[in-house]
Design a protein around this nucleic acid. Structure first.
Lengths: 171, 171
DNA sequence: TAAAAACCCTGTAGCAGCTACAGGGTCAAG
DNA sequence: CTTGACCCTGTAGCTGCTACAGGGTTTTTA
């Protein structure tokens, strides 16, 4: 990469500003370049400056911010939640109460989703036990069960205000 | 509804074919009419016949099929999975092995998602404990934690072939 | 009997959180 | 001086709906 001499580094690098092109940032973070651009467009990542070829140029601050975002995503936060967090991060003097509230809410979402999925799991296991795998579909207890099923969702389907946590699909 | 006389029903109703308009089906199933049309377009629900006003006309079979679909959705199955199930349902003589396999796979998806969410839950709780809610953001352990976080996703992020179960957001 | 409300139709756009092009420009190596 | 690896913008696609817009029909009400 670059034109760094393999021997005898400069006597004094008086400005070791690390800069990355988008592909470098991508491989440093394992986040696809397209997603990085997408985060910029969504306002999660501040817009990078450009070099004369109109390529995005990133510094350490962008790297840290991107890692922050990826950590939040790994914890399943929405872009909305992340947006609030990075805004707060940029206002170091504001009280951290909002951060705490956000985290508490998010934890509740996750807990609600776990409960709901456990309920599904139970129902699916019950349904699964209705078939012994040896007959035709016409005598399959699973199909029959799906026709008659009484899904008691109400106690486990959290209402809109309470959960934004995904179903069982997608990563 | 209709012009049914309140007294003295017809001596012999020799064809009590129950038919529904989309709105009736919708309220019978608590499934919005738009979603019913959508399922038809996706091929989950067979296309209804039409009356002279071009309104969809549904019979009992449609009602049952729709309930089947809704039960599957309540169990968090994808349209892809449901499509397979209804196809099999329409072939009563085929072996039910595919049904069983589908259900086993789906159960695995759900289990994998539960495990992953429990892992998230733990991390979120740990993170939450880093802040006592009394200082400015600059001393907030949560923000700090999100900057440094090492999310050990690998053991809990099921790979693409294994899970299609959603994150913690959305219903 | 006519006007108003309630229902139905098709088609399109939007939601989240990306991913995957198409159709270009830039740059370093052989 | 051409090849290939990068970069750019912009748009369309994914899932499972939901919400219109802009029409037509039917039912109810005055």
């Amino acid at each position: 990469m670059g034109r760094q001499p393999t021997t005898s580094p400069p006597v004094e690098e008086y400005k070791p500003v690390l800069e990355y092109k988008i592909g470098e940032l991508a491989s440093l973070t394992s986040c696809p370049a397209e997603t990085i651009r997408y985060y910029e467009k969504q306002g999660l990542l501040p817009a990078a400056s450009r070099n004369q070829a109109n390529y995005r140029v990133y510094q350490e601050g962008h790297l840290k911010r991107l890692q922050f975002i990826l950590h939040c995503r790994a914890l399943d936060m929405t872009q909305e939640e992340i947006r609030l967090l990075v805004t707060l991060q940029d206002k170091p003097d504001s009280p951290c109460e909002q951060v705490d509230v956000l985290l508490d809410n998010h934890l509740q979402h996750v807990e609600a989703r776990i409960t709901q999925l456990q309920h599904l799991q139970e129902q699916l296991r019950l349904l699964r036990s209705q078939c012994d795998n040896h007959g035709p579909v016409s005598r399959c207890g699973i199909i029959e069960g799906l026709e008659r099923l009484d899904v008691s969702t109400d106690d486990h389907h959290p209402d809109d205000t309470c959960s934004h946590v995904h179903g069982s699909h997608g990563l």
